[in-house]
């Protein structure tokens, strides 16, 4: 019974993955026009005043998931230069420090890059609410993330989805020789 369920889950997952859009096409037709997206009213008087996703997103580094755009890469390469603040007194903080999580059960260890996150977000978006600043003090599981907690507050909603296991679980425990937790030298994977 258990074995049957396992194989059903695998077949299910493979079918869903294979149905995903391929990143091969780079033209604007990869993105659904607003008037056909099931949300915008094609009769809306201002529909033709709005920018089409394909027009903007086809100019950016391609991806196979999410908005089909590599947002972090787009920012780093200067393809986009989104504003960091509206109020002049806002302090802009970017932290270049990787964390490596080892308590990952059967899966690979997780590398969390503070840099990629703080280029977009403020410290206060995660600390001390979603995550405590002290490494290991928060205590969350993959099931919490899948339920929209912890990392899942953004990943799966607005940042790359939870189908992309290896983007976070990127450290092979079999070959990892370093120390878990906050890393001394910065500059890990983006």
């Amino acid at each position: 019974m258990n074995a049957l369920l396992k194989w059903l889950a695998v077949i299910w997952a493979v079918l869903l993955w294979s149905a995903a859009p391929l990143p091969a096409v780079a033209g604007p037709e990869k993105w659904t026009p607003l008037e056909k997206d099931g949300l915008h009213d094609p009769q809306g008087p201002a529909i033709h005043e709005l920018q089409q996703p394909g027009e903007a997103l086809s100019q950016m580094p391609p991806d196979s998931v999410g908005n089909q755009v590599r947002w972090v890469e787009a920012l780093r390469k200067g393809v986009i230069n989104p504003r960091t603040n509206i109020l002049p007194e806002t302090k802009i903080q970017v932290l270049d420090q990787d964390l490596i999580y080892g308590n990952t059960g059967d899966n690979w260890f997780v590398l969390f890059p503070h840099k990629a996150h703080t280029e977009w977000l403020d410290c206060a978006n995660c600390h001390e609410g979603v995550f405590k600043s002290k490494f290991g003090a928060t205590g969350f599981k993959m099931m919490d993330i899948l339920a929209g907690k912890a990392c899942g507050q953004c990943h799966g909603a607005v940042s790359f989805p939870l189908t992309e296991c290896r983007r976070c679980h990127s450290i092979d425990p079999g070959t990892f020789k370093g120390k878990l937790g906050p890393q001394q030298a910065a500059g890990g994977k983006p």
């Binding site: 369920l5 889950a9 997952a13 099931g38 996703p53 607005v158 189908t163």
Partner: peptide
């Protein structure tokens, strides 16, 4: 182990639940 398979099933379920709204742009 078992955790992995539970995760696979949860993920597959999550994906199929999300499929009905597959037209709009991500995070609209």
């Amino acid at each position: 182990g078992r955790g992995f398979w539970r995760l696979m099933m949860a993920l597959a379920l999550a994906l199929s639940l999300g499929m009905d709204a597959a037209m709009a742009e991500y995070a609209d």
